[in-house]
């Protein structure tokens, strides 16, 4: 089931789509978040940032940006 990263459960996820402009895409891509990449959501603050594990590092992503990342559970 597809959902956005802000709403997804704390699980291993696969990125299927990024609904962002050029800048956001570039930012996310350079940190290893791109169509088809595997990430793991590990925590989420109420109305606040989402924390994901990408490759071997942890990233905090603001809510707005997280909502633009469409993921599905794997």
């Amino acid at each position: 089931m597809k959902t956005n990263l802000a709403k997804a459960n704390n699980k291993k996820l696969k990125v299927v789509q990024i609904n962002g402009g050029h800048n956001i895409l570039k930012k996310l891509n350079s940190m290893g978040i791109f169509d088809g990449s595997l990430i793991e959501k590990i925590a989420s603050y109420n109305h606040g940032p989402v924390i994901v594990k990408v490759m071997n590092s942890q990233l905090a992503i603001g809510r707005g940006m997280a909502e633009k990342i469409i993921v599905e559970e794997v």
Partner: peptide
């Protein structure tokens, strides 16, 4: 304002 986007170091 822009969204947070930051690496959290171990």
């Amino acid at each position: 304002s822009d969204d947070l986007f930051i690496e959290i170091p171990p």
